Amino acid sequence: MEDEFPKKRNIRPTEKSNLPIVTLLVLVLLVLAMLYIGYEYISDSSSSSEELTSVVVDSTLEENAAETISDEPAPADDPIEETKPEPVKETPAAPKPEAKPTVSAASIGGEQITHTVRSGETFSSIASRYNLKTETLQGLNSSVPNVKAGVTKLKVQVKAVHTVGPGDVLRVVAGKYGISKEALMKANGKTRDFSERGEKLIIPFPDRK
C-alpha cells in the first residue's frame, strides 16, 4: 500500500532574474541618447543654415567695385567733353555825379542877390557876369544840378547894391567902388552908358572870387 501521503517531489526553486529589466533600461537609455544626438544635429544644421542666410554683404566691397568701375578710362570712341562755364560779364557801375563843394556866403562877403536864369545862360556865363568863379557859383548853389531858363533861381554874391542918386552916372559909380565901367555895365546887363535915378545897380567884386 502506497503511502497515504506521498512524498513530495523536490521542486526546483525558481530563480528570479533582473536581466530583462536591465536590458530594458539599457535600450531606453540608448533610445534617449539617439534622440538627443539627433536633436543636437538638427539644431546645429538649422543654426548653420540661418548663419548662411543671414550673412550681410560687406558694403565696402560694393563701394570698392563701384570706384574701380568709375576709375576706368572712358573709351576713346566716346570722349567726354568738358563744359566750361561762361564768364559772367560784369556790368560797369554808373559813374556817380561828383558832389559840388558847398561855399558859404560869409566866406565871400558882400551882399547876396537872386538871379533868375535867362535863355542861353549857364553856370559859367552867369559867374563871369558877376566876376565870380564857376566853382564859387556852383558852391553857393550846390543843391542845383543844372539850370533852366525862367525856372532856376541862383544865389549870387556881389560886393554891394547901389541906389542911383543925383549925378550918379555909371563912370562915377564904378570909380566909387573901384571897378571898371564895363564891369558895372556887364553886371547889370546894360548896353548903354545910362542910369536912372533910384535905379539899383549891382556892384560886382573888383577881383574874381
Rank of each mutant, 00 (worst) to 15 (best):
E2D: 10
R9T: 10
N10I: 11
R12K: 13
E15F: 00
S17M: 05
L19W: 07
V26F: 06
L30Y: 07
V31E: 02
V31N: 08
A33P: 01
Y41M: 06
D44V: 08
S45I: 08
S45D: 10
S46E: 14
S48G: 12
E50R: 08
V55E: 04
V55R: 00
D58K: 07
T60V: 01
T60I: 08
N64R: 14
N64I: 11
A66Q: 14
E67Q: 12
I69V: 13
P75I: 09
P75D: 15
K84G: 04
K89W: 09
P92S: 05
A94G: 03
P95S: 03
A99Y: 04
K100L: 08
S107Q: 10
G109S: 08
Q112P: 05
I113S: 01
H115D: 01
H115A: 04
T116E: 08
T122G: 09
F123M: 08
F123S: 07
S125P: 00
R129H: 10
L132R: 03
L132N: 05
Q138D: 04
N141Y: 05
V144S: 03
P145H: 05
N146F: 12
G150H: 04
V151R: 12
L154T: 04
V158I: 14
V161Q: 11
V169L: 03
R171A: 09
V173I: 14
A174V: 02
Y177L: 04
G178I: 04
K181I: 11
K186V: 08
N188W: 07
G189C: 03
D193L: 07
F194I: 14
S195I: 09
G198P: 06
K200H: 10
F205S: 00
